[in-house]
Design a protein around this nucleic acid. Sequence first.
DNA 1: CAACTTTTTCCACACTCAGGACAAAGGTCG
DNA 2: CGACCTTTGTCCTGAGTGTGGAAAAAGTTG
Lengths: 396, 396
Amino acid sequence: MRRMTARPANAHQARLLRLLRDGGPNSRAQLGDQVDLSRSKLAVEVDRLLETGLVVADGLAASRGGRRSHNIRLAPELRFLGVDIGATSVDVAVTNAELEVLGHLNHPMDVREGPVAVFEQVLSLAAKLRASGLAEGFDGAGIGVPGPVRFPEGVPVAPPIMPGWDGFPVREALSQELGCPVMVDNDVNLMAMGEQHAGVARSVGDFLCVKIGTGIGCGIVVGGEVYRGTTGSAGDIGHIQVDPDGRPCACGNKGCLEAHFSGAALARDAEDAAREGRSPEFAARLETAGRLTAADVAAAAAAGDAAALDLIREGGNRLGQVIASLVSFFNPGLVVIGGGVTGLGHNLLASVRTQVYKQSLPLATGNLPIVLGELGPTAGVIGAARLISDHLLSPA
Amino acid sequence: MRRMTARPANAHQARLLRLLRDGGPNSRAQLGDQVDLSRSKLAVEVDRLLETGLVVADGLAASRGGRRSHNIRLAPELRFLGVDIGATSVDVAVTNAELEVLGHLNHPMDVREGPVAVFEQVLSLAAKLRASGLAEGFDGAGIGVPGPVRFPEGVPVAPPIMPGWDGFPVREALSQELGCPVMVDNDVNLMAMGEQHAGVARSVGDFLCVKIGTGIGCGIVVGGEVYRGTTGSAGDIGHIQVDPDGRPCACGNKGCLEAHFSGAALARDAEDAAREGRSPEFAARLETAGRLTAADVAAAAAAGDAAALDLIREGGNRLGQVIASLVSFFNPGLVVIGGGVTGLGHNLLASVRTQVYKQSLPLATGNLPIVLGELGPTAGVIGAARLISDHLLSPA
DNA sequence: CAACTTTTTCCACACTCAGGACAAAGGTCG
DNA sequence: CGACCTTTGTCCTGAGTGTGGAAAAAGTTG
């Protein structure tokens, strides 16, 4: 099968392609309403896009009171691969050009096994998706890794939780293997892009997206664009100090947010509570499973276990404390909380909200929604697809 | 005298005008090197600018090895007014089109006297500048106020330290009085723009500018543009909590940064130290002046007073703690510290740096300069002039 | 003074794009 | 079902924009 070769030749074409991506099939007339080009100019550009094959005719639209318009849509055979490498598992999904997830696979895996092993897994999952008939090939791939990335080159830099990846040419390597363009970003940024594209953050220009998984990170969106900082480490809030005399952290400091509240910290606290006899619920679960995870805390809390609720409340307070600072500083229009521990759900949300509304000034919190992400594990892969799609739909 | 009436007609003209503003007089050929337009196109646009009167001929340039080029420059009679309203004084300056300060006046004044009294003062200072022959009129004015501003309308919103200004139509009123376009912004944002235009932050795209005066604020520059947040309160870091059991703050919370370290807090601490006999230096100064200010702390520190040095070190630690969090979050390329207390100078800088380098991760701090602003009180007024200049040099 | 540069002007040609005229296609109402 | 309206798509013209070459103007260097 022939893959996507063409790229938009100018800003007008890029604009049209994005409208088709985000709004689905559309008639020429509807497009005309949105772009402020003369009918003739629009017709020319659409014709050129049809010639390139990026866009195809798609039947007739419903009448709006007169002659029916011809629909057009992005080529239905285009496929993007979205890859989300987490600390403990990889997600791989295939989407169409409109970034709808056609198939999604997850595989538990420790990122510390290193880039070679992980890529082997990613490629095998991608092959599985291809074999199931969802795609004959990929026109582009986005990939998220749990650490800072030098974005232009697509290379992880000094990632604390994934030694062995430092400087590994992720973009280059994957592009070689897949034979298509690849873009790499931090997993948290991709989650933010996912929620922006298809989740709760649609139509919000400036927002924060806090992801709590094994670690804690924060995606920053400014004017609809992800902000990555000078060295690509923006949003690295896991090592903000929340208690000068707090717990030691893997980074060498004391009292980091991550040391007090994260998937890993929560699991350890739950195990401690179980062993110290403070929670029969945890003890029972530890007995059965051999170890505890954030999911156990969520389940125990749902069952009304006091120790679990305590852990969530305390953690939510710590997190809320940091978010309150960020809200004062950044004045976002929305705060999204996502990641593995969102199972803690509304208990967590409640204590975060309490803390933020208490500590930040009314002008910043007045109309500030603090909500859970609505896409769950697909946020990352949708964001990844969006990343490469944004790249490919830019003028060459 | 005829004031500036024309505005650039298109993006090319705007580009050229900004080059002339930031680079001073320039030859057509030099401009050509910078803008990537064909010679003919460039000539046409320059001719049009000359017609409008925004730009004038300015003699011959030095030869670059062949025929000498005709210089052009922004109309030398253009004048911008920069106004910086602080908590305890107002600064008013007049600049030419290249944003060079031609005259600068300062007048102590309490912002709480309200907008009417303050404007009376501002207009009187502006009249004085005009009377001294520096300007015959103003082509635009920028004005900074010490609180959040709804930027598009130029109206302060819920400013904590300036009751009576809430909702006052600053832009509208001043524009009426001065008879020229006016833009209003937070004073901290203007300081950031000033340092960006003519100070330490030239050529840095993403940076933070922390201003410590009566209160504490932080200007945020993203990709060369000031970021103001969803409701215009971005950068309001004075009420970030640095100590859950800390001092009560005017905002109603406890342990706000501002309650522990700011011009006002410092003065109070110094007076306490004097009264409690912990510092003969402070006691002597209090005796003489009747009250103490941040400047006294600076002077005492310079004289080697232990209590003063303690205050600075402790305050610097608090501030450094907050800046460390912001650095982790925002990953700036530069942190500028300015405002009234910069007299504390390198003592302050040292403790801030220590704290930041200790608490933030190497990837973010690796190549992060933390420096004092180099413009002092002119940063605000230059920023104000820059604000209105940016506005007027945008295509209409 | 001759040879070489740089700057500026002039001009012809290609290209872009808006908007009007008109044809095609469908709806609506009597 | 047919007259009349609206909407959509196509074609065409004219105004304007922008490029690049040629040549003149103005200097420099040896």
